[in-house]
Design a protein around this nucleic acid. Structure first.
Length: 277
DNA sequence: AGCTCAACCTGGCTGC
DNA sequence: TGCAGCCAGGTTGAGC
């Protein structure tokens, strides 16, 4: 489910209900996620007040006075807020109780993960899984001309395709497989082109496209995700209208040529070979 | 350092 | 209807 927009919308959805509240109980239904859920999670969190929920890349950061809990939704993770007397459903892996409310992680494929960074280990930014992430797409380092320059500078000498380069998140975080194809289409860049062969101008267009694509998705998700965060209905597919993603064989909205699907780095890429050069 | 690929896990869809 | 095979929004770690 989640690329950066979905994670951000989730953060915005749960923040007002969780921020400032105290954890009364933690239940681990199945702790065998991407990494084992910390054994003593309940002991760590019980009675602790969540002061803030931030986001770094696709990680949600729940701040407590004695440390930070990191939560990743993986491929299929969804967070929902429900009443604690509502019975947990299949695939609810972990739940956090805040008095009468339960924050539940629903994750069929178990690619999500939960980690704990105690205060004495230093700032959460240096947590191993966060340490080597690229910059945030909406932060200063990627704003204006900085984004394009960064993409350009870091790509010199790289032979990997620009699709894989962008998706890897080493330069800018949050661009998952859907929005990677979409951003490259918006920037009119062929995803097969080597990252090191893209011009400064091309990367200026790409940086702008990334910001616009993610921003649009966040705005669209704000409304479509609201009830999915607050209710316990089956999670509807969050899918903004895409111009190329999942449109193999359908006509390009801009030129009418048929959208192509290829595989790069074990992931599908969609593009228009006429519009994207 | 950078590239490629297997792996983690479960469900849904396609095609025989 | 059953079943095998393939695909899926992410990310790490091993091997070269």
């Amino acid at each position: 489910m989640p690329e950066l927009p979905e994670v951000e919308v989730t953060r915005q959805g749960i923040s007002p209900q969780i921020k400032g509240k105290t954890i009364t109980k933690v239940i681990v239904h199945d702790g065998r996620l991407r990494w084992p859920v910390p054994k003593n999670l309940e002991k760590i969190l019980q009675g602790q007040q969540c002061t803030e929920i931030r986001r770094r890349g696709k990680y949600l950061l729940f701040e407590f006075s004695h440390g930070v809990m990191l939560l990743h939704l993986g491929m299929t993770g969804v967070l929902r807020i429900q009443k604690i007397d509502e019975a947990p459903k299949k695939y609810n892996r972990v739940e956090f109780h805040f008095d009468t409310l339960a924050l539940r992680l629903h994750d069929p494929r178990k690619f999500g993960s939960i980690h704990w960074n105690p205060k004495e280990d230093g700032p959460v930014e240096s947590f191993p899984l966060l340490a080597k992430l690229g910059v945030e797409p909406f932060e200063k380092e990627f704003s204006g001309d900085h984004g394009g320059e960064l993409l350009y500078k870091k790509s010199r000498g790289r032979s990997v395709s620009v699709k894989q380069y962008l998706l890897a998140g080493q330069v800018v975080v949050g661009v998952g497989n859907i929005y990677c194809s979409e951003s490259l289409f918006e920037a009119k860049i062929n995803p097969k082109k080597a990252a090191g062969k893209i011009s400064k101008l091309g990367y200026a267009r790409l940086a702008l496209a990334v910001r616009l694509t993610l921003e649009k998705a966040i705005n669209a998700g704000g409304s479509s995700l609201k009830d999915f965060v607050h209710s316990d209905g089956e999670p509807g597919h969050f899918m903004v209208l895409t111009k190329v993603y999942d449109r193999a064989g359908l006509p390009c909205h801009d030129c009418g040529a048929l959208i192509k699907q290829i595989v790069q780095g074990q992931r599908s890429t969609y593009f228009c070979s006429v519009c994207q050069k």
